[in-house]
């Protein structure tokens, strides 16, 4: 159980690292939000499952489940709000970067 929990926590960290790399890798804002906002909730899900496997009491695991469900609901909603705000204020993909 310890090894499985550690492996899940490390897998969550790898997803978080991929999200941060995606912030630096892509040239335009729309590519960045497409990669990062999806990857990070997957990282939180894996890490929370890994921690909940080691939870000392039942209430501890239940609270972790509440946090995970809340984060999985709110993370795409806030990404959608940022994206709609960027589109409605006239942000567009620049032409010279799209041709690369």
């Amino acid at each position: 159980m310890e090894i499985l929990s550690g492996a899940l926590v490390i897998a969550g960290l790898v997803f978080a690292l991929l999200g941060v790399i995606g912030l630096y890798r892509y040239p335009d804002f729309y590519f960045r939000i497409l990669v990062t906002a999806n990857i990070d909730s997957a990282g939180l899900l894996l890490l929370a499952v890994g921690i909940a496997l080691q939870s000392p009491t039942a209430a501890f695991g239940l609270k972790i489940a509440i946090i995970t469900v809340l984060a999985l609901i709110t993370s795409p909603l806030s990404a959608h709000a940022i994206l709609r705000s960027a589109r409605d204020t006239g942000y567009r993909i620049r032409q010279e970067e799209r041709d690369d």
Partner: peptide, 24 residues
């Protein structure tokens, strides 16, 4: 742009929640 900063704030808050869960 300011939208990049908002996206980074969103990602940073998820990192903070991860750290809080691990600290608990």
């Amino acid at each position: 742009t300011i939208f990049d900063r908002l996206l980074c704030f969103n990602v940073l808050s998820i990192k903070v929640v991860m750290a809080m869960t691990l600290y608990a």
